[in-house]
């Protein structure tokens, strides 16, 4: 719905109201919009966005989350795997002792104490009030210290000129980037693209929500079922948690 109902011009508003009335009368759901924080509201520290991934449901041969992310943010590869950006990737993990194999997606863990934010000289790496860790590409100088510092290998450096970026997902040469938790979707009350793809094309292994909201599906689930953080020894308090790994 970008463009409709939010453009601040009287004539347009009139049109938008009219069509909203018509669509509502027709039975079209506008629940998603109703759930969104309103555009003028800032992200709030009362919210902590998080993700729960059940590796038992996650199949080794499925990469729905990865393709969902790639098409959402237009992360088209250049055919150079060593320098191509990956915001989310599938890991196949084999236990050295038991041979047990599991599969899971790895992405920015949106830590409460993110090392990338600590090391960034200009403050371009930052954590939003609602716990989302982002790169402000306007102040990123491309020093790549955050890439060195991230324990999850979640960051990529843009190695070439880019074209065809999405309007909601600016990306450019010489800066570092990583998963944004689809902040543009979250701010409109939607779930991240990977979670959506996992539900529609994958095995429904990902749950997204507000960890601080005791009634949310994710909060209820992590309270009642065991889950863990990757490299919990670092005490980073990640926003992404895993089950059955």
């Amino acid at each position: 719905m970008t463009g409709s109902g939010t453009v601040s011009r009287r004539s347009l508003l009139k049109g938008a109201t009219a069509c909203a009335a018509i669509t509502a009368a027709g039975g079209f759901r506008i629940v998603e919009l109703a759930m969104a924080k309103s555009p003028e509201d800032a992200a709030s520290s009362l919210v902590r966005w998080g993700m729960l991934i059940d590796t038992e449901k996650c199949a080794s041969d499925c990469d729905a989350c990865v393709s969902g992310c790639n098409s959402e943010h237009n992360l088209e590869g250049m055919g150079r795997p060593e320098t191509d950006a990956q915001w989310i990737r599938k890991l196949d993990i084999t236990d050295n002792q038991t041979g047990h194999v599991s599969s899971l997606p790895m992405l920015c863990q949106h830590c409460e104490n993110p090392p990338c934010v600590d090391v960034c000289p200009t403050g371009a790496s930052f954590k939003r009030e609602d716990g989302i860790v982002l790169v402000d590409k306007h102040t990123c100088i491309g020093c790549r210290y955050c890439v060195i510092a991230c324990p999850y290998k979640a960051r990529s450096f843009v190695h070439e000129n880019l074209h065809n970026q999405k309007s909601y997902s600016p990306r450019g040469k010489g800066t570092v980037e990583s998963c944004t938790f689809c902040v543009h979707r979250i701010d409109n009350g939607r779930t991240p693209a990977c979670v959506e793809s996992c539900q529609s094309d994958g095995n429904g292994a990902m749950v997204f929500g507000d960890l601080n909201d005791k009634a949310s599906e994710i909060a209820v689930k992590i309270k009642s079922e065991p889950s863990r953080q990757v490299r919990e020894d670092l005490e980073l308090n990640t926003g992404v948690r895993y089950q059955n790994v």
């Binding site: 409709s4 049109g15 909203a20 039975g27």
Partner: peptide, 17 residues
């Protein structure tokens, strides 16, 4: 009605712009 409403809203939006 829904179809019409949707089409109309998009047309209106484009038209207004």
């Amino acid at each position: 009605a829904s179809v019409f409403g949707l089409l109309f809203s998009v047309a209106l939006l484009a038209d207004t712009l």
